[in-house]
Design a protein around this nucleic acid. Structure first.
Lengths: 151, 151
DNA sequence: AATTAAATGAAAATTATTTTTATTTATACG
DNA sequence: CGTATAAATAAAAATAATTTTCATTTAATT
């Protein structure tokens, strides 16, 4: 994700194209890893002639609401974010618990019938979360694991 | 969920059968709603000759780890818990954003190929999250909505 | 009944997140 | 290209969620 792409995304969403937003997007988009708001902040606060943590929170929240970035849910009660390079079609992700890497799952793996069933019953579906957790191929390999694992 | 059932579940997990754990389980199991740790605490703190909030957190966490209760993920960055009456087979839930009601989805709606695909690539799947959000049939009905909605 | 590992209480600490208000800035428009 | 204005951000402080610590109690075992 470069500034050009970030700019296009913000334009499409009718959001102002600000240096801070671009910086947050480029930060998240530079690697296929999930990060917390705090981690994003630490990585960019010295560029962009400094940015406040509350601003990072706001930007992440807006982008997540808009569907540009994906919230990653872990048991640690913190919120993480991931900016997927593939913004084209609806799909979900595999999340490596060891190295934080996020991989695309080809297409939305929700069985056809599922959303229909809810709707037939009279309810309305507004969104869904599908996240596969595990250990990626690299981390599963004894050698590769050590190289890939960050912490 | 009554104390008898709670007791059986704890026994099966090799966890001590304590009054506080039973109280937390009965509280969550009394209605098909998701609750926060704080909400569970408020509902039971005057029974059980008082219980501390940290204890509620601990119990909820243990039970979630053990798979007895389900974490409900919302955008508000808080953690919610749901104890499903149906402990028999693996399935997922529909969550009403309006009344907090949680409904079972028949069977795990994950397309067969999804988990396989990750495993074929050399990765290992340890868990998955599948949660459908929306507005339930009752809340979707103008009349019913008012009656069902709590806040 | 005694033993012991596990569970809990209570208080304090930590961490994540949000709010507020004043200031700045991107964009639209003349 | 300047100007107006709504939107975005800073900075500090506040809030709320969650965790830690350590002393005490209790469930389960013998």
């Amino acid at each position: 994700m470069n500034r050009e792409q970030g700019r296009d995304i913000l334009k499409r969403l009718n959001m102002k194209v600000t240096p801070k937003r671009l910086e947050v997007m480029c930060c998240l988009g530079s690697e296929p890893l999930y990060l917390s708001a705090d981690e994003v902040w630490h990585r960019i606060k010295d560029r962009v002639d400094s940015i406040g943590l509350p601003t990072v929170y706001r930007i992440l929240d807006e982008l997540a609401e808009a569907g540009v970035i994906t919230r990653i849910f872990l048991a640690d009660r913190k919120q993480y974010y991931f900016l997927c390079a593939n913004q084209d079609h609806h799909h979900h992700h595999f999340v490596c618990e060891s190295c934080r890497r996020v991989e695309d799952l080809g297409q939305c793996a929700l069985g056809e019938g599922t959303l229909d069933a809810v709707q037939r019953s009279g309810g309305r579906v507004t969104s869904h979360i599908l996240q596969i957790n595990g250990v990626c191929a690299t981390c599963s390999t004894p050698r590769g694991g050590a190289a890939c694992r960050t912490k």
